[in-house]
Amino acid sequence: MDISKMKALSYDELRALYREFLHSQSISKLTINTSYVDTFYLWRKGSKDLFWNTVTSADFENDAKEALIKALTENSTGNVNSLVNSYLSHLRRFRLFLASDGTNETSTPKQENIANHAYRHKKKTEVNVPEPSIEQVEFYLAKWDTLENYRLQENALNKLFFELCPNNTDIIDVLLKASALNDFYSTNIFSIYPVAKHICTLDIDARLKAGDVTFVGDIQYVNIGDTEKNFYSFATKYCSHHNPLDYPIYDSYVDEVLRYFRNRDGFSDFQDGDLKEYIKFKDILINFRAFYGLDKYNLKQIDQYVWLLGKDYFPKTYEKKMRGDK
């Protein structure tokens, strides 16, 4: 897109053109209406030059945050730290608009990929999930603390993994941990002993402590009889309960939320199958955190927030004990 031509447009002309782009992106009407207004906050409260200097800055993230904090402090009575992340997300989307040609017909391959995903999952994008923000994360982390069954089950697992059986060299210790995970999380592993025996053969303690993400792949494939089983979600849970800051948990609720926001906001262009490859999955979750300005939260907190969000907006037809495999 020719930035010089964009800069020559009036406020109303630019907003009208941007609104057409937003409608082409298969995002919710609420998001379109909000973006149509909030994207241009710096123009309204500051100046045209301030807006353009900010969105085209080589150091966009820092310059945009600084400009928004200043403008919000001077003009808003709300919580500046909460509001700034929402406005930042709108400016990020506008920068995607500037990087495109503004239409669907000749969009980049990445944009086409995102649009195709959105079309295939149209019903899910019609669900009106609140945009990720500091306020939303705080709400769901507070909600987690009120859910006594989940909180106490997790505390029990923490005691088992961190205090009673921290290592993975004794088959009895590993059996206890694997059995507890299988029960609490309803991971539907019907023969847990081969899984525990497999884990014991891997000499995993140093790798877990170091946060080696390749290790999930080593755990997830287990031969039971003549059949190779893929216990991907269980493997992420087993690693996470040893090192929760380095190993976020994959499950179907998290999968739903990440695909939803990819389709709606385009925070990433991953393929659905990438979520089943742990190295890619962790990178996608980190990109999600960065896109929505949630870097103050560790991956464990983001994990809890995304899971509860998915549980609220993409409920299953049956209830699981905690965070079960599919």
Rank of each mutant, 00 (worst) to 15 (best):
L22S: 04
A8C: 14
S47C: 00
E20G: 14
S24V: 04
E20Q: 14
D49W: 07
T34S: 12
W43M: 03
S28F: 12
S47G: 01
T39P: 03
K48T: 06
S26N: 07
T34G: 04
Y11A: 04
L42W: 05
G46Y: 06
A8F: 15
E20T: 04
R44T: 10
L9T: 12
K7C: 09
K7Q: 15
D12F: 13
A16F: 10
D49F: 08
H23I: 00
S10L: 05
K48G: 00
Y36T: 09
D49L: 08
Q25P: 00
E13L: 01
M6D: 10
D12R: 05
E13R: 03
G46M: 01
M6I: 08
Y36H: 05
W43C: 00
E13N: 09
M6H: 08
T39F: 09
A8D: 15
L14W: 01
W43R: 01
A16S: 09
L14Y: 06
T34W: 07
S47T: 00
D12Y: 11
M6S: 03
N33F: 08
Q25E: 15
G46C: 09
A16Q: 10
I27T: 13
D12K: 13
K7R: 13
S47Y: 02
N33G: 12
F40A: 02
K29S: 07
R15W: 15
N33C: 07
V37S: 13
S26I: 13
S24G: 12
Y36N: 11
I27R: 13
T31R: 09
K45S: 07
Q25S: 10
R15G: 14
T31I: 10
R15M: 11
S28D: 09
L30R: 11
K48M: 04
A16W: 13
